[in-house]
Simulated scan of single mutants.
Amino acid sequence: MTAGETIRIPPCSGHAVELDAGDELVVIDPMGQQVSDLTAFCREDLDEYLSSGRSIDYASRLWLSTGDVLYSNRSRPMFTILEDTCGRHDFTLTPCSKEMFEKLYGEAEGRPGCEGNLARALAPWGVSRDRVPVAFNIFMHVAVEADGRIAVLPPLSKPGDHVRLRAEMPLVVAMTACSAGQSNNFRYKPIDFRVERARDRSAG
């Protein structure tokens, strides 16, 4: 991957990348209404991972956007959201899985889903499926009713919408182009991303 190169994650698949502190990750919805499940691990200690519970707790709200910090399970900043042109994401539901496709979609033999695709992308770092946490579900639109019921609705993202995240520590990051039909209006599409390296900005 060359500096600033835009990489396409094909539909229903995943990709992982290493970031240094200060690097900026831009996740892009090229066609609109497509979710990307994103998770991260501290590169220096893979027992430290992105935590939805810590992040929501410290932000005091469910829906995080520009200016919010995404924290690890050890309450350390992992990402800062620098830009967000969509403004609606989910940080509560787990990545779709083989079992979810069987239980909720009635598939006789479920697909790997984002959980399996994240685990496959993270395998070179020794992260197994059982260690994939709740992801930051970029562009995912989850509505919460007054009685506590939830509904997964089509994403609000338009073609070209993006989220820019600054890494606050050295990270291993994995992303998907989500496989769950409810999350993308049953129009499975790709996700794009690029990494803007801090060292390149300082050299310029």
Rank of each mutant, 00 (worst) to 15 (best):
F79G: 01
N184V: 13
H15S: 04
L19K: 11
R201E: 01
L62Q: 14
I138P: 00
G106D: 02
L64Q: 00
F193L: 03
F79D: 00
A3L: 09
T39E: 03
P124C: 15
M31T: 12
I191S: 03
E109I: 13
R120F: 07
L104Y: 05
E99H: 10
A59V: 08
D130N: 13
R111A: 01
P30R: 08
R129S: 14
D192F: 13
R194W: 05
E102C: 08
D45L: 05
A59N: 01
D68C: 05
G113T: 05
P11A: 05
C86Q: 09
L93K: 02
K103W: 04
C42W: 15
T6D: 00
K103C: 03
E115A: 14
Q182L: 14
S128Q: 14
E48G: 07
L156T: 12
N73C: 11
F41M: 03
D90V: 04
A40K: 07
R166I: 06
A167W: 03
G14T: 08
P10T: 13
P154V: 10
R54W: 15
V27N: 00
C42P: 10
T66W: 01
S75V: 12
A177G: 08
H162V: 06
C42Y: 15
G204V: 08
L64S: 10
I7W: 00
P159M: 12
L153P: 04
E44I: 04
V134I: 13
E5G: 10
M100T: 07
C42M: 08
A167D: 06
H15C: 05
D68A: 11
K98F: 07
A198N: 06
T85Q: 07
G181M: 02
L118S: 04
F41Y: 15
N185L: 12
I81F: 04
P170R: 03
E109N: 12
G4L: 07
F79K: 00
L104N: 11
L165F: 12
S60G: 13
E44Q: 14
A21V: 13
S183H: 01
G204A: 07
D84A: 09
G148V: 14
T80N: 10
K189H: 11
T6A: 12
G14C: 09
A119I: 10
M31V: 11
V27A: 00
P95C: 06
V27Y: 01
S183N: 05
F91K: 02
D29Y: 04
F79A: 02
D37Y: 07
A135W: 00
D45T: 11
D68Y: 01
P124S: 15
T176P: 09
G160W: 04
H141K: 04
P190Q: 03
T6M: 06
R187T: 12
R131P: 09
A40I: 12
T66E: 13
L122V: 08
G181I: 08
R131K: 11
C12M: 14
N184W: 02
D20W: 11
V27Q: 00
E83F: 06
R197N: 05
A203Q: 13
R166M: 11
E168Q: 12
A174R: 10
Y58R: 09
Y49E: 05
Q33G: 08
R61A: 03
M1R: 14
L171Y: 09
A40Q: 03
I191V: 15
M140I: 07
D147S: 14
G116D: 02
F91L: 15
V69Y: 11
F136G: 02
W125P: 01
P30E: 02
